[in-house]
């Protein structure tokens, strides 16, 4: 396989990136220190800068044409930039500061291109094109790091949302045989599904005959929420557990009536305390104050 001859500009840029990488890295690191030192700890990011130049060198040794963004040859560079943006995020840099960090490679690169052009006879004519190729290449590296930064942040947010989904639906044991799920916030479909499943699992696991679903923290009970609640109650019933829905505040009760929702099949209570009392009662417990003789 033969590689096509690169343009003179690409050849010049390639030569600098390949042969002068040590000089470039030193100058780049110095620029980073000037820009960030004191304010941010960019030691890890600097290490990634070195790795980036190494990765660039590896690609150019195989083919002196500058790898365009999105191509297969770009992938190793992107991988390093993902690491770099992660280090930057950890050091407290913003996405634009991260891109700036990459852009700081430009000055050293331009300096070396100019020096090389001056050294070689007739090198000056390729210089403008090489500078243009260099600025385009570094821009793409910077933008990639910017995108990688945002992508990683989205990943973090998504992971946190998933965790929240599980965190916010704990099934707790209130008493032997009595479970409770305190629901808080919007009962969107995804979360309701999680609640329903974890409650049913816990019912099987503990063989609890009573479960209280507390909706004190749910601001709106519409037909969708009601449908989910009724399904959960029905499924629990099939597994031998009786459900009580608590936390039906006056405004919710009135709204439910107007909507035409029929909750007559389900025991409902205004507060969790009321529900617990009913559950204890049905389980054969008696709650009374002690200490004062009758």
């Amino acid at each position: 396989m033969t590689t096509p001859t690169p343009s003179p500009a690409d050849a010049l840029l390639s030569a600098v990136l390949l042969e002068d990488s040590a000089v470039l890295l030193t100058a780049w690191a110095a620029a980073l220190d000037r820009q960030f030192a004191g304010a941010r700890d960019v030691a890890d990011a600097e290490r990634e800068c070195g790795r980036l130049l190494t990765a660039v060198g590896r690609e150019l040794r195989a083919d002196p044409a500058i790898p365009p963004r999105g191509s297969t040859r770009w992938e190793p560079l992107r991988d390093v930039l993902v690491e770099l943006s992660r280090d930057c995020a950890q050091a407290g840099l913003s996405p634009s500061e991260t891109a700036t960090l990459v852009f700081l490679l430009k000055q050293p690169l331009f300096d070396r291109l100019r020096e090389r052009a001056a050294e070689s006879a007739g090198g000056a004519e390729g210089l403008t094109d090489a500078l243009w190729a260099a600025t385009t290449f570094v821009d793409e590296l910077g933008l990639e790091s910017f995108d990688a930064y945002l992508r990683s942040r989205e990943d973090i947010i998504r992971r946190q949302q998933d965790e929240l989904l599980e965190l916010s639906t704990p099934v707790v044991k209130l008493w032997t045989g009595i479970l409770a799920v305190p629901l808080i916030g919007t009962l969107d479909s995804a979360r309701t599904q999680v609640v329903m499943e974890s409650l049913l699992e816990k019912i099987i696991e503990t063989d609890a005959p009573m479960a209280i679903i507390d909706i004190t923290g749910v601001p709106t009970v519409d037909t969708l929420v009601a449908q989910h609640l009724l399904k959960t109650v029905a499924a629990a019933r099939l597994m031998g557990a009786d459900c009580i829905i608590s936390g039906i505040r006056p405004q919710i009760a009135q709204t439910i009536v107007h909507l035409g929702l029929d909750l007559s099949d389900v025991t409902t209570k205004a507060s969790l305390a009321d529900a617990l009392r009913v559950a204890l009662d049905r389980s054969g417990y008696e709650v009374r104050k002690i200490g004062r003789p009758a």
């Binding site: 601001p219 709106t220 519409d222 969708l224 405004q251 009135q254 709204t255 909507l259």
Partner: peptide, 17 residues
């Protein structure tokens, strides 16, 4: 009032869905 807020919000929830 809170009751009226709740009624309106619930109605809108239905219509929007």
């Amino acid at each position: 009032r809170l009751v009226d807020q709740t009624k309106l919000v619930t109605a809108v929830s239905e219509l929007a869905r």
